[in-house]
Write a protein that binds this DNA or RNA. Structure first.
Lengths: 217, 217, 217, 217
DNA sequence: AATGAATGAGCCTTCATTCAT
DNA sequence: GATGAATGAAGGCTCATTCAT
C-alpha cells in the first residue's frame, strides 16, 4: 500500500527502529515512546503511520523477513544443475547463517523467534510469504535425495528433522550459550556446525533412500 | 469457609493457575491480576504467598517441571541393560510425548518455550535442574552408539541434532499446525513422528560410527 | 477547551495545589491523587508535567519560597544607611509576618516546617537558596550591634536565639493556639509580638556588647 | 486503664518499640509490621492491644513524654530557695539536654517534634500533661525575674522567647547540623549553648525589669 | 487471650492512544 | 499532514485491618 520510498523518511526510520527495539525487548516490553524517540519522530507517529503498536509490529516482522531474505538469498541452493548433496549443504549453511546473524541487520531472527514461540495474528502472513518458499525448496532437495517418489509424510518429517536441527541453534540459543558455548563461538564454529547438520542429515537421508529400495526383509 | 489445613488450597490454586497463565502469555505479558482473578483470590495474594510476581513465576516454573518429570519419567531410557538403539527410541518417544502433552499438567513445555525465547533470571536454575540431566542421559546414549570414544564436540552436535528434531515440534508448533497438521493430528501420528526421529537419528549415528572406524580413503 | 498558551494553566494549577497539599500533609502523607483531584487534572498529570511526585515536591518548595520572598522582601533590612537597631526590628517584623502569613501564598512556611521536621532530599537546596541568605543578613546586623569583631560562635548563637524566638511562632503554633491564642489573635497582636522579640533581642545584644567592652572583673 | 506492669510484656515491648520506630520514621512511614516484628509479637497485636495504629501512636507519644520527664526532672529548677537567675539557668540547661538527648531513651524529642509540626488528635492530651507544667514553672521563674507584677502578655512573650531559643536546637536541628555543626558537636558545646541562652535571656529580662521600674520618659 | 491467614483499598508510575490544532 | 499535550486504564506492590480459630 504505502511503498517505502525515500520520500517517506519517517515511515522507514520507524520501521527500521521498530525491528531493533522489538528484537531487543519483545512486543510487550518494547514501548512506543522508545521507538519514536530512537527514530526521532513524534510519539503520535506510530499511531499516525501504522494505526497501532500491534500493526507496527506486524509490519516490522514482515520487513525483517524481507531484509533477511535479501541478505541471505537461497540462490545457490535453487541451482538445479548442482548435485542435491551440495544443494542441501548450501541450503543448511545459508539458513544457519541467516539465523545466527547477530549484526544490526540480523535482528530479524530474534523477532521471528519471539513470534513463533508466541504467535500473534501476524504469523499467518509471515508463513505465507517467507516460510512456505523455504519449505518448498528444502522439500524439493529432499525428494531428490530420497529418490523414487517417497510418500509425502516421510518427506515432511525429514524436512522437519533438518529445520529442527538448524532452529535448535536459534530457539535454544540461550541454553547453548550456557552449556556448549564453543559450538557457536565464532564463524568457523558456526560453519562446522552447519557442516555437521548437513552430514548428519545426508547420512540419514541416504540410509532412508537405501531402505526404501531394499526394504528390510 | 475455606478450612486452612495442610493442603493450603489458595496457595496451590494460585500455583496451578500461574502455570496456566504464564504458559499462555509468558512472564512479562501475564498479569498478577489475571492470575488472582482466575484463582478466585485477592490481588494481594500473590505478594502475600510468593512475595512477588517474579518469585511466583520461579515457583510455577519449578512446579511445572516437577509435574512433567513425574508424569514422563525417563526410567526406561536409563536402563543400561537395554540396547542403546532401543534406549534412544524410548528417550525420544518419551521426550516428545512430554513436549506435546497439552493436558493441564503438560503446560510446562509452553512455559519453558517462553522462557527460552525470552529468558528471565529463572532460566539458569531451570537449566541446572531440568535440562542438564536430560542432556547427560542423551549424551551417554549417543556415546554408546558412536563407540570408540568420540570427541566431545561431535557428541554435542549430535545431541543438538536430536533435541533439535524433537523441539521443532514444540517451538515451531504454530507452523506445523498450519502446514503439516496431519503430523501431530493424534497420538498415533505423534508416535510415528517419534519413530521417524529415532530412525533418522539412528541412521545418522550409525553412519558416523562407521565413518570413524573406516574413514573415507 | 483549555487553550494551550504560554500560561500552561494545568501546570500552574498543579503547582499551586501541590503547595497547599504538601503544606497540609507533608511530602510523605500527601498523595498524588489528592493533588490531581484538587487541581482537576488526570492522575497521570503529575508524572507528565513533573516526572515524579518527588520532583513536583521540589518545584512546589521552590515556588513557595519564591512567592514568599516576592511578597515579603527584606529590602528595608538590607538598607545599610539605617541604624542597626532599626534594621533588626525591620528584619524580625518582616520575617515573622512571612512566617505567619496564612494566606494562599503564605503556605511556604508550613511547607518548610514539614521539611525541617522530616527532611527529604530537597532540604539542601532550600537551605542554600532560601535560608543561607537570611542567615547572612541577620548575621551582618548582629555583628554591627555587637561591635568590635565578636567571635563567630557567639554571633551564631545570637543568631539562633533570634531565629528561635521567631520560629517558635511557627513550629509551636499548635501549642500557642491552645495556650496563648491572644498573642497571635490579629495583626496588631502579631506586630506586638514582633516588637517584643526585637526588644528582647536588642536588650540582650546591647548587654553583650557592653560586657565585651568591659568584661566582668 | 491497662497499666503496663511486668505481667503484660507484649504491651510494654510494643510501646517501647513504637517510640523508636515512630521517632525514626514518623507516623505514616512507620509500619505496623515493622513495629510488631521488632517487638517479636504478632502483626495483629497492635490492633489487639491498641485498637489501631493511630491509637498506638498516641500512647507512644504519651509514654515518650513520661520517660523524658522521668529522666530529666526539673527538680532543681523547682527549688524556690535558689536565686531565680540560677533557677533559670538550671531550667534551660535541663530542658536543652532533654531535647538533645539522642540516646535510645531520648527519641521522645523526635516524636514530639513530629507531633508539634504536624499535630494529630493526640496533641491535646500531651499539652495538658507534659507541656503545661513546664510552662507554668518557667512562667513562675520569669515573674520572679521581672519583678513587680508584670502583665500576663509580657510574661507569655518572654516565656516564648526562652522556649523558642531552646526549641530552635530541636526543630531546626537539620539546619544547624548543616550550617553550624560545631554548636552541637559534643556535650561541652551543648552546655555552652545552654549557658548562652541563659545569659541572653537573663540580660533581656534584667533590662525589661529595669525598664519597667524606670520607663523611658 | 492471642494469632496468622487473608483482604480491599490505595499507593506511584507507565503506557498506548486520542484530539485539537 | 503532522504534532504534542493530555488522558484513562492498568501495572505491580504495600499496608492496616479483620476474622475464624
Amino acid at each position: 500500500m504505502t511503498q517505502p520510498t525515500a520520500i517517506e523518511p519517517a515511515f522507514d526510520r520507524l520501521l527500521q527502529v521498530a525491528v531493533e527495539v522489538f528484537a531487543e525487548c519483545g512486543f510487550r516490553e518494547a514501548t512506543v515512546r522508545e521507538i519514536c524517540s530512537r527514530a526521532n519522530v513524534n510519539v503520535a507517529s506510530v499511531n499516525y503511520y501504522f494505526r497501532s503498536k500491534e500493526a507496527l509490529y506486524a509490519q516490522a516482522l514482515a520487513f525483517a523477513f524481507r531484509e533477511a531474505n535479501r541478505l541471505y538469498p537461497q540462490d545457490a541452493a535453487f541451482d538445479k544443475s548442482l548435485p542435491p548433496e551440495q544443494r542441501l549443504a548450501l541450503f543448511i549453511k545459508n539458513f544457519l547463517y541467516k539465523l545466527l546473524d547477530d549484526s544490526q541487520l540480523g535482528l530479524h531472527s530474534k523477532l521471528i523467534a519471539h513470534e513463533i514461540a508466541d504467535p500473534t495474528k501476524a504469523l499467518d502472513e509471515i508463513i505465507e510469504t517467507a516460510i512456505v518458499p523455504q519449505f518448498a525448496l528444502l522439500e524439493e532437495i529432499i525428494r531428490q535425495l530420497l529418490g523414487s517418489s517417497p510418500d509425502n509424510v516421510t518427506v515432511q518429517r525429514c524436512l522437519l528433522s533438518i529445520f529442527g536441527q538448524c532452529l535448535m541453534f536459534k530457539h535454544s540459543r540461550s541454553i547453548i550459550d550456557r552449556l556448549y558455548p564453543e559450538l557457536i563461538a565464532d564463524e568457523s564454529a558456526i560453519q562446522a556446525s552447519a557442516e555437521h547438520i548437513a552430514q548428519f542429515s545426508l547420512a540419514a537421508l541416504t540410509q532412508f533412500a537405501l531402505q526404501k529400495v531394499r526394504p528390510t526383509p
